[in-house]
Design a protein around this nucleic acid. Structure first.
Length: 1002
RNA sequence: GCGCGGUUAGCUCAGUGGUAGAGCACUACAUUGACACUGUAGGGGUCACAGGUUCGAACCCUGUAUCGCGCACCA
């Protein structure tokens, strides 16, 4: 029975044994610096081979909980960016932590077909290599090219995620264009169509002239544009010689104007309502064709411009609505590619819309209609992907009226309530009400709520080829008989989901619309009857919004779905809160009757050092793979996490990664040190034993307590999703507390130069029992070190998976663990528990031990400061004298000697300093540094005076507080006591410094 | 216009009412047996500003300034 598991303690640590470690036998092979390249691939392959990432639904039981995350699927065209690094490192940390908590973990990976992006990439390649457009080669051939491209280049990012160490279950990798995924999309479409939530209609949409497709509102970003406001006049037909002046930013759309609007309450113009104006363009059109009404509409702001608005219902959203209200005709004057059409008139016809603007201004100028042009900047919608101004355009599109809006809106917790502890989502057959979903940070819940409250129908059709084809077929019939016959024949066509027929039209034109899941023979049958499938594909997000369950085999009730859905956490950027998160929540309610995930963690946006967004065009985005090559994946992960606080944007700086590398190196060398100080000096080279409470030094106890504090802090940080806090804790604990203080102090027990057996005990070389080398203590110290390191490696593992696995095996800790709990891999080693009261009692760990070392450390720092002030070279050994505040063990004096780099530390309770002595007072006692004539009296006086000033300032601050009766009366007892103690401490220091000063002067 | 977030050391940021912190950068010293990818010591802050609440405010309230983001937009 290893370690403490056999004892009466409830605390079940395993790794308290000291044994011969593999490394120990091969010390020469341990490199002086950590070399990630030789380690990372080895362990990643090992994990894959052992199936460590593969989730097994069979293992989920009431005892073994499931934990699941679905990856935000990166674009199949994508390459790893710093944003991916941040996002996926967080997911990997969560997944690895959950495994160590004993959960069955599914982190489900995959890629997104990314319609516009992928189509763009392939089209560009086609035009570059073959000088052809996609239309030149046709739809089928083009799609073939896309698939070839995907096979060849797609999924680069998957390999890159592996380099980063992501522990995704690659056996379940999905792609949003997989066949079974496509069936999910079609099923959902048909279902929503049946519910009449999906409809087709001619609406004003955001048209991208570059990619020539409609876009959703979310794909449009507003950008401020510097342009001009043009003032032109129009003549009122009923009152020749009377003109109205109109201000516009888009004179090229004048040929599309079908009215002029004024506010009916505007005293200047109300009288003209009902009359007509002569539209100046196209100039060559006859006058009667250009007469358009003056209408009154509340929408017109009479403060703006001239208070007269031109109304272009076919090319402006607001104008479209005005047109609807007043039954205005719509004149579409533009081609899909953004060039003007013949309705715009001869000089404009065929011109690009921006060139047309210039020409329109010239035309107005020529005819004397242009009054003035003033510089003006306004917000213009841009196509997010193509980065060209959107053209509001009338077109026939498919729309979705969002389902389950109310439920989805209500399920997200709006108010902050206590600690955000990750909850256990209900799974499988559990019918209990779903808990609420939490956003981290919480404030995104408000943004979400606002959007959900103002939601507009979603334009889901895209005029692209790469994507899920809309499962709707239609036929135009020109007689009622034809309709009847067609409907009759339709019955012969096998359709899995019949009854979704819509017939509309009248007299000589009827449209039959069939929406159905595709099936064998069906398409042929429909074609035979003269039906054609809708040419459009669906918005990529119309497949992504099903990701959490479509990837798990829905609509089949697969084991994966039963055990792992809904998922626990979703990690994503706030930039896709509407695109993706909100829609997934609605889909979750609509198709799975509940929330799709329990917690949503929104990362910050990664920016460069100057705070600019990372972008290809700026070239400010480092290649994470380069960084991994240069510093290692662990370094990249640690550096990124350390600089990414919850809810804040991250300013990326390569120095962070460098720091991560340094940290890994520190960890490496601390373990190397452990191996070097070996096996306790036993002649067999092997020592076995538990930590013996009786042999624990104050430093041992202190580091155990610090470990306990670190574990607790880590647990809190995880519960609050504060990963930068977690890395800060690890950094502080390991570097500062463990390496800088504990390891240095432990060298007293470990250093072979202090071995008693090297020389006969003399006064210069005291025997072991007065603080020199002690074999048992050496062994006990190693046990403490192994205990701390084996815990520390586990705390580090979610953040630094590679180096911790290497060290876990290298140090031999794996051998002390059961096969499935760390024996095979650190991935399954149990997450450290805080030290419990029994443990602390057994090892005699108390708060006093902690304080004792903390004041001792202060004494050491101050002592080193004395040396420095006295200009004593760092490598020169000097003699200190200590008047201790409490009795000190001989061992502790040796530690002091080492930490102060002293020739000796003489303990003298009744020491009376001579004149040439520097001194400090701390909670551990008074430390003296006699300088025997070397002291610079004036410099020392100056130092003491400065010190006294500082002390007096601090003391008087506390004194003033304590002198305030309001303070002493109202303040809680513990705060009062703390202040009194603080004052006493400062006073003690003050007395000491004063005495020292007096001694110098007298 | 509405909403959200920020303003703390030279830089990047922690810090939810009780002694202002970290990392980097800087200065000086040290090649000592884990680590120079290191160690030790040091300098450096009117916590944006103004009021208020409180015995006590970086922290809570009100307002202002300023930067950033989101939403909605007037042509």
């Amino acid at each position: 029975m290893p370690g403490l598991s056999g004892s009466a303690l409830s605390y079940d640590f395993y790794s308290v044994f000291i044994r011969v470690h593999p490394w120990l036998k091969n010390m020469s092979e341990i490199t002086k610096a950590y070399e990630p390249q030789s380690v990372e691939d080895k362990w990643y392959d090992f994990w894959l081979k052992q199936g460590c990432f593969t989730a097994d639904p069979a293992r989920v039981s009431s005892k073994r909980a499931a934990y699941s995350i679905v990856i935000p699927p990166p674009n199949v065209t994508g390459v790893l960016t710093m944003g991916h690094v941040l996002n996926n490192t967080i997911q990997d940390i969560l997944a690895r932590k959950a495994r160590m908590d004993g959960k069955e973990v599914l982190w489900l990976p995959g890629t997104d077909h990314a319609g516009i992006a992928t189509e763009g990439v392939v089209a560009r390649q086609l035009s570059k290599e073959e000088k052809k457009s996609k239309r030149d080669i046709g739809r089928e051939e083009f799609l073939k090219r896309v698939r070839i491209w995907k096979e060849k280049h797609g999924g680069i990012i998957i390999g890159q995620l592996k380099k980063l160490g992501c522990s995704c279950d690659w056996t379940r990798e999905r792609f949003t264009m997989d066949d079974d995924y496509a069936r999910c999309v079609q099923k959902v479409f048909v279902d929503l169509y049946k519910k009449s939530l999906i409809y087709r209609g001619k609406r004003m949409v955001n048209w991208c002239p570059a990619t020539q497709t409609a876009l959703s509102d979310e794909e449009v970003v507003m950008k401020e544009q510097k342009g001009s406001l043009y003032y032109f006049k129009v003549e009122i037909a009923e009152a020749p010689g009377t003109f109205l002046t109109i201000a516009t930013t888009r004179p090229e759309t004048i040929p599309g104007d079908t009215a002029v609007a004024v506010n009916p309450k505007d005293p200047r113009y109300a009288k003209y309502i009902g009359k007509h104006v002569i539209r100046p363009l196209p100039a060559e059109f006859p006058r009667e064709q250009k007469l358009i009404p003056i209408i009154g509409d509340e929408h017109v702001d009479f403060e703006f411009g001239t208070g007269v608005l031109k109304v272009t219902p076919a090319h402006d959203k607001a104008d479209f609505e005005i047109g609807q209200r007043h039954n205005l005709p719509q004149i579409d004057i533009m081609q899909p590619n953004g060039h003007m059409n013949p309705l715009a008139g001869a000089p404009l016809n065929g011109l690009d819309r921006f060139k047309a603007r210039k020409v329109a201004v010239e035309l107005l100028t020529e005819m004397g209609a242009l009054e003035k042009e003033e510089p003006y900047s306004n917000n213009v919608g841009f196509s997010e992907r193509a980065d060209v101004p959107i053209e509001p355009r009338l077109s026939e599109q498919w729309f979705l009226k969002y389902p389950s809006v109310e439920k989805a809106r209500e399920c997200v917790e709006q108010a902050e309530i206590g600690l955000a502890v990750p909850g256990e989502p209900r799974r499988g057959g559990d019918t209990a009400p779903y808990p609420k979903m939490r956003f981290h940070p919480q404030r995104w819940a408000k943004v979400y709520d606002h959007w959900m409250g103002n939601i507009q129908d979603w334009c889901i059709s895209r005029q692209l080829w790469w994507g899920h084809r809309i499962p709707v077929w239609s036929k135009t019939c020109n007689s009622a008989e034809d309709v009847k016959a067609t409907l009759q024949s339709l019955k012969q066509v096998p359709m899995p989901n019949p009854g979704n027929l819509k017939v509309h039209g009248e007299a000589s034109e009827f449209h039959i619309q069939v929406c159905t899941l595709p099936s064998d023979g069906m398409e042929k049958g429909l074609e035979h009857l003269g039906f054609t499938q809708d040419p459009d594909v669906l918005d990529t997000w119309f497949s992504s919004w099903l990701w959490p369950f479509a990837t798990m085999g829905w609509p089949e009730q697969t084991d994966t779905l039963k055990k792992f859905y809904p998922t626990n956490d979703l990690v994503t950027g706030p930039d896709i809160i509407f695109f993706w998160v909100a829609r997934m929540i609605m889909a979750g309610y609509e198709f799975m009757n509940g929330l799709p995930f329990q917690n949503v963690y929104f990362t910050g946006i990664i920016r460069d050092k100057q705070g600019r967004k990372m972008s290809k065009s700026l070239g400010n985005s480092p290649d994470p793979l380069d960084l991994i090559g240069k510093y290692g994946a662990d370094a990249l992960r640690f550096g990124t996490m350390r600089s990414a606080p919850l809810g804040q944007d991250i300013l990326f700086d390569e120095q962070n990664v460098e720091l991560g590398r340094n940290f890994c190196n520190k960890l490496w060398n601390a373990c190397r040190f452990r191996q070097m100080v070996g096996s306790g000096g036993s002649t067999t080279g092997e020592v076995q034993g538990e930590i013996d409470p009786k042999l624990l030094t104050a430093d041992d106890k202190w580091i155990l307590l610090k470990l306990d504090a670190a574990i607790r802090e880590m647990n809190t940080a995880f519960a609050e999703y504060k990963f930068s806090d977690a890395t800060a804790t690890l950094y502080r604990f390991f570097w500062s507390e463990y390496c800088d203080w504990y390891l240095e102090a432990s060298k007293v027990a470990l250093s072979s130069s202090r071995r008693g057996d090297e020389a006969e005990p003399t006064s210069e070389n005291p025997p072991p029992h007065v603080g020199g080398y002690d074999e048992k203590r050496h062994a006990n110290t190693l046990a403490v070190i192994d205990f701390v390191l084996s815990h520390t490696l586990r705390l580090f593992h979610p953040f630094l998976p590679f180096i911790t696995e290497e060290l876990w095996h290298g140090m031999g800790y794996a051998e002390d663990m059961p096969e499935n709990q760390g024996g095979q891999t650190i991935m399954t080693a149990p997450w450290p528990k805080p030290l419990d009261d029994d443990f602390k009692l057994h090892y005699g760990l108390t708060g006093d031990d902690e304080k004792c070392i903390e004041t001792r450390n202060e004494l050491v720092s101050q002592g080193r400061n004395l040396r420095r002030t006295a200009n004593i070279a760092a490598n020169k050994k000097v003699k200190f004298i200590l008047k201790p505040a409490r009795e000190l063990a001989a061992h502790d004096v040796e530690v002091l000697k080492l930490l102060l780099n002293a020739e000796s530390v003489e303990v003298k309770g009744d020491y009376q300093p001579s004149k040439n002595t520097m001194t400090v007072r701390t909670g551990s006692g008074d430390l003296f540094l006699p300088l025997e004539g070397l002291i610079d009296v004036e410099a020392e006086k100056a130092r003491l005076k400065k010190e006294l000033e500082k002390i007096e300032a601090e003391a008087s601050k506390v004194e003033q507080k304590l002198a305030n009766p309001n303070f002493t009366r109202k303040v809680p007892a513990n705060v009062l006591q703390e202040h009194q103690q603080r004052l006493a401490d400062w006073q003690a220091k003050r007395d000491h410094v004063k005495a020292a000063l007096a001694a110098l002067e007298g």
